[in-house]
């Protein structure tokens, strides 16, 4: 059983990163690699689908903080979607909804990019 996994797909010029499992200090570097790779490929429009993510700690939250500026400086964004309530609560507790757009579904987040 994989403790944490990512899967990347593309739809309408939007890059979708699906997360699953447990995102903590041990697994956060895996997600950092995914974002570094997207930047290398100049893919700055990113939707992160949290549907299968069961858990996040501050090390996981830090990954989004580390990459948001680069995406926005390149006219892209990291939009977050489909969080389980326990995961959303941690983002909410720290005020992250002020900085990130959070959508209830992946499609809504993709739509937002298309309309921009």
């Amino acid at each position: 059983m994989s403790e944490f996994f990512t899967n990347i797909k593309q739809q309408n010029q939007v890059n979708i990163v699906e997360l699953g499992g447990y995102l903590d200090a041990h697994t956060a570097p895996q997600l950092e690699n995914v974002f570094s790779e997207l930047i290398k490929e100049k893919k700055f429009n990113v939707v992160v689908n949290f549907e299968q993510l069961s858990y996040i700690s501050s090390a996981g939250l830090g990954v989004f903080m580390a990459f948001i500026e680069t995406m926005r400086e390149n006219k892209g964004d990291i939009k977050l979607a489909a969080m389980k309530p326990n995961v959303f609560n941690i983002f909410d507790l720290l005020g992250f909804p002020l900085l990130y757009e959070i959508f209830s579904s992946e499609n809504e987040a993709i739509e937002k990019f298309i309309k921009q």
Binding site: G62, M65, A66, L93, L94, G95, L98
Partner: peptide, 21 residues
């Protein structure tokens, strides 16, 4: 200060704050 923290897009240093919260 979470507002300032987010504005400056800092990374790390939230562990103790989370524990206390």
């Amino acid at each position: 200060d979470m507002k300032q923290y987010l504005e400056e897009k800092r990374v790390g240093g939230l562990g103790l704050y989370l524990m206390r919260t």
